[in-house]
Amino acid sequence: MIRVQEDDFDIGAELRTLTEGDTSVGAVASFTGLVRDMAPIDGQSREIRTMTLEHYPGMTEKKLAEIEAEANSRWPLAASLIIHRYGTLEPGDQIVFVACASSHRQAAFDACQFLMDWLKTEAPFWKLEDTDTGGVWVDSRESDNQAAARWGKSPDTDG
């Protein structure tokens, strides 16, 4: 399941719902991304007041659904979930949550990493960090491209 929302989410409730009624599940792995209070901007560590996430409604949901379907084709998952927030967030706030349930832990761990790595390079979200000297758009990172590339090329990436 995928959800793109402005509202916060409750990790405990999400994890309980994910596996409810399915006793074949032996492993649940999850990742939560949070807003940091500091970020390197122009080589200097700067304090972040808020972070605003913009996205492309329609394409975002489409890409997340494709990424989730790809994970389910690669690993034997009993259930999976991607939640990504948009709007203005503060340091400490939850941004993103992915969770995968499977019979055994390796599939759950690997699928979670895959979901995050592909989400980072494929899902149309952009982060604007508000600092005491104004708003700064976050740059994409080569390390994220490399992390995504280790799973093989995305079918629709333009490189």
Binding site: G33, L53, H55, Y56, M59, H84, I95, V96, M116, L119, K120, T121, E122, A123, P124, F125, W126, K127, W137, V138, D139, S140, D144
Partner: peptide, 10 residues
Amino acid sequence: IAFFPPVTGG
């Protein structure tokens, strides 16, 4: 058609 910078979600 949409134009945008490299994505930075997650």
